[in-house]
Design a protein around this nucleic acid. Structure first.
Lengths: 346, 346
DNA sequence: CGCTTCCATGGAAGCGCTTCCAATTGCCGG
DNA sequence: CCGGCAATTGGAAGCGCTTCCATGGAAGCG
């Protein structure tokens, strides 16, 4: 066992000042002479003193705890790059800002999901929440959290979530549009689209952008078959046949994320199709899997890790009062079409 | 803002007992009459009281905080299923046990990595650490942590780590052996092997099992080219040419994990090779990517999520004194060869 | 020069909980 | 009927920190 850790009183004694003064120095408070500040810092150094975060939050009433809530069920979707990357970005930012982040998986089919989320605030004393889709558009949930005095930042809100609280994300609609333009340029005129889960509004915006690009070319609903998947590889493989065998005979299959696109690709391989010769396939996100499959997948890059990081920064700026704009802020980051090898001439 | 949260004193007042008694009930202490216990629980219910974890750990001297430390650099290896799955398993187990887990990424090339890890104990007050490779075999680090009075469980220790503290893992050596037996059965006699990073001893055990299987068939060093990768997809694609162009002309490439195998597969596709007709490829871990690539990868399954969960359970059982066996415990879980479609007759 | 004002510091209280120890009760054998 | 012991409860102290308020001195002002 270790000898006991030094406390703030030890520092105070060694540096010959009162406990409050040490506290002031530690928290960057004003009204401390430079000489005293230096003396305290030296004592801190000498004793290898670290504040006790538990004591600090008990006394100060601030836990410096954030929570990252995600919905995807890892049993069903074991590979969710999106969530891991968000988390990682959040973790990084927290480290820099002196906050901690609790990661919480709350499958959204859970009947008491709202209670589960609110428990993070009551039980763990979280001061801020990062909500990823589909929670980022669950206005009821967001308002319930806000009502508890807990700040919220949403990741990729698709609509209603945006007006309610701060958020970060890319322009999904523009992403879908840009990607589709590229497909149209390659001569494709008949499409299949695998959309995401109901309620994931940001994913639906991708579809909206897709339609807009089609309409600009005078194309419409009769030129595309739309199906809904659940973002998993498996749903891609399951849904592909319906698209491939459809009388419309699509020449390009557009998927709302990369995992489903990888599933479609796999199903296409199983049929002996030549990609992109016989069929073009696109994803969304630019997850690692996009570069791993063969041939590498054309997709839309979004900086997911940065999204997680920005979410934390936004949250913390609200918490420490640096930012107190009354209206919600939405930080939009850049997306980019990444043309790889699953797309070719129609 | 919320009205203030109820405290233990509120519960005491409502249930008409002293604060200590409430504390006893909350912590499942002995010597409380059933009638009183029920009364307290009812008050807790009625007030929707939740203990304040910060206050509890300050008073009780136990933070109920664990940390999960992993080394892989996510910039370089953006897809590490292994770490995410361990984390998820740990998270799940913690939720059930009332502990919290801090996730910490400490790249092992960091010069002050040891300090970074020890800081988790001093700064965050963690009571237990989960160390994944290669830290699981860093005896110096483990002992330094132990010396601070912090418990340690290692994940997949490959050798030295095992005798030092508790651990969980599969029998990597047997996994490598079983997989290789399968390859030999298919008639392969000339091999390429992409090993993992230096210092990842559990990954090296896979190679050891591989050799053992070869020796049983009277094969040896001259029948296999061995290279070292870094577990990433990219290192698989980079290393593949050296193996494919080697005068030995290997008919099967064995990789220490799935990502590298996926890289090799991709490189093989780029050359127009027919898999498994021209070449067999195997991975290790049975990560999601193994099922996603085309053709799906033959590999060895290890229950990574369960590993993470067991690690936490082991740690907690040490912390609360349920388990106080003096010698280190190693929990070995089952592995299984998963034959998919990247392996065929030589 | 007496007054206010500002700066730098310290004293005391208390955050919500657990732990240590003392007090009370009921019940035993002798 | 009494000392003793276990079961049950409560009082008080204190974990390590921040916050509120008081203090003393230096500086500013007419």
């Amino acid at each position: 066992m270790t000898s006991k850790r030094p406390t703030i009183d030890d520092v105070a004694r060694v540096s010959g000042v009162a406990r409050v003064t040490v506290s002031r120095v530690l928290n960057g408070g004003p009204n401390v002479r430079d000489e005293v500040r230096a003396r305290v810092m030296q004592a801190v150094e000498q004793l290898d003193y670290k504040v006790n975060p538990q004591a600090r939050s008990l006394a100060g009433g601030a836990s410096r705890l954030l929570a990252f809530v995600f919905a995807s069920d890892p049993e069903n979707d074991p590979n969710s790059y999106y969530e891991s990357a968000l988390e990682l970005g959040a973790l990084r930012a927290c480290l820099a800002l002196g906050y901690q982040v609790l990661v919480q998986n709350v499958p959204d089919q859970t009947p008491d999901y709202r209670k589960r989320v609110l428990d993070l605030i009551t039980t763990q004393r979280c001061e801020g929440l990062i909500l990823s889709p589909p929670y980022s558009d669950d206005v009821g949930l967001i308002e319930a959290v806000l009502a508890q005095g807990c700040k919220v930042v949403t990741v990729s809100p698709g609509g209603p979530g945006r007006g309610t609280t701060d958020g970060v994300g890319v322009d999904d609609e523009a992403g879908g549009y840009d990607l589709t333009r590229e497909l149209l340029r390659l001569g494709h005129r008949r499409f299949g689209f695998i959309a995401g889960l109901e309620g994931h509004l940001s994913a639906d915006r991708r579809l909206k952008g897709f339609w807009r690009a089609l309409e600009e070319q005078g194309l419409g609903e009769r030129d595309c078959v739309v199906l809904r998947g659940d973002f998993t590889f498996r749903s891609g493989t399951h849904l592909a046949p319906q698209l491939l065998d459809h009388p419309l005979k699509p020449t390009a299959l557009v998927c709302a994320n990369d995992d489903m696109a990888a599933g479609v690709l796999s199903a296409a391989h199983a049929r002996g199709l030549n990609i992109p010769g016989d069929l073009s396939i696109t994803g969304f996100d630019d997850a690692p899997v996009a570069a791993i499959v063969w041939p590498p997948l054309t997709t839309v890059n979004q900086p997911v890790k940065v999204l997680g990081q920005r979410a934390v920064e936004l949250l913390v700026s609200r918490l420490n009062g640096v930012n107190s704009t009354p209206e919600p802020i939405f930080q939009q980051l850049e997306h980019a079409v990444v043309s790889r090898q699953t797309t070719g001439l129609a």
